[in-house]
Amino acid sequence: MALDLSLRHRRLSRSTGGDLVIFTMLAAGAAFMAMPMVYTISNAFKPLNELFIYPPQFLVRHPTMDNFNDLFVLMAKSWVPVSRYFFNSLFIVAAGTAGNVVFGSLCAYALSKHSFPGKRVFNELILLSLMFAGAVLLIPHYLTISYLGWMNTYAAIIVPAWAMTLGVFLMRNFIDAMVHDTLLEAARMDGANEFDCYWRIAMPIVKPAWLTLIILAFQSLWGNQGSLYLYAEQLKPLPYALGQIVGGGIGRAGAAAAVTVILMIVPITVFVINQSQIVQTMGTSGITGE
């Protein structure tokens, strides 16, 4: 019982036995899922001889910072300063994510709470477009970008990201479920215009939704190397540059392991901050509870 109380909120309809089974299941699952992270991090601290040892070891035995030092030496030698790659990544990810969240939620709000001619068709189009395999769209997409004259600009990556369909679909489902019409009616009676309703009422309620959307947009943009559309070295993002640095064969296996960790740390940090925000939302919604 004491264990239970310390681990979770006690609810009325729960048995202690069930709790124990569930905790065991979760712990086993978590260990299994954590494997790649443990392995990747462990690899980054392995000295070169341990990376190629037989039989292969899962965990590091004599941790060292050599791989990171190697990487920093290699980075210092790159033709375009690393800070520039870093800026590129930051700019692309920030602009792309922000646009996706703002445009997506604006559209989702109208699709969920307004009724107007064409609404059903639009909703259906969004759903259907999720079912179309992306591989064949690559060519038309490429032609569009080049027709717009966006080749070799940040816009080639950022603007299409604003229209990522999954985001609207996600937001619409959350607004459907969480924002009650009565609340909006009341606000309109008090003289709120539609933008107020969207920005000051709907958006705060669906905070978990846009926090989730930020993670998704961030992740897909962070992994984007932009190699199809960006060919000026000054415009390329960090993952691309790091990939180039460590692409030099087996001698750079150590540095490559370090790169994997660096590329992983950023999304994880964003994820952790994000999740703690979702937790806070929960805390406050209990107080205001409509």
């Binding site: 445009f103 997506g104 604006l106 559209c107 709000y109 109208a110 699709l111 307004h114 639009f122 189009l125 969004i126 477009s129 769209l137 997409h141 569009t144 603007v159 299409p160 604003w162 229209a163 369909t165 609207v168 539609e194 969207y198």
Partner: peptide, 14 residues
Amino acid sequence: FIAPFGILFFIFTV
């Protein structure tokens, strides 16, 4: 409300 996303959605997806 729909226009900014809708236009881009049409160009890049539909």
